[in-house]
């Protein structure tokens, strides 16, 4: 991917770019580069999607009820256990 200096620069700012933490100027610069660099576009898209998938997967995981029950017992909080 690092065919040009711009690709390399993008790589270093990638984290902040996908988190929306870069200055407007840098963003504009990166977006201009993305328009003409297919590889960087793919890397940005798949990086975003990677983070998104982990988010979605995480949201679907809950505390198993029996684990919660044992925790409350261990902490002597039985009276606060919700049915």
């Amino acid at each position: 991917m690092t065919e040009s200096k711009e690709c390399e620069r993008l790589l270093h700012s990638l984290g902040e770019y996908v988190d929306g933490e870069l200055s407007e100027d840098l963003c504009t610069e990166i977006e201009r580069h993305l328009l003409e660099c297919h590889n960087c576009q793919v890397v940005v898209n798949t990086l975003r999607k990677t983070i998104e998938l982990y988010h979605e997967e995480e949201e679907q995981e809950t505390l198993p009820p029996e684990v919660g029950r044992r925790l409350y017992m261990r902490l002597n909080l039985e009276d606060y256990l919700r049915p």
Binding site: L11, H12, N45, T46
Partner: peptide, 12 residues
């Protein structure tokens, strides 16, 4: 140094 991306495939 940040390792360069190698696998460039758009699976989105």
């Amino acid at each position: 140094s940040i390792e360069e991306p190698r696998d460039i495939v758009d699976w989105c």
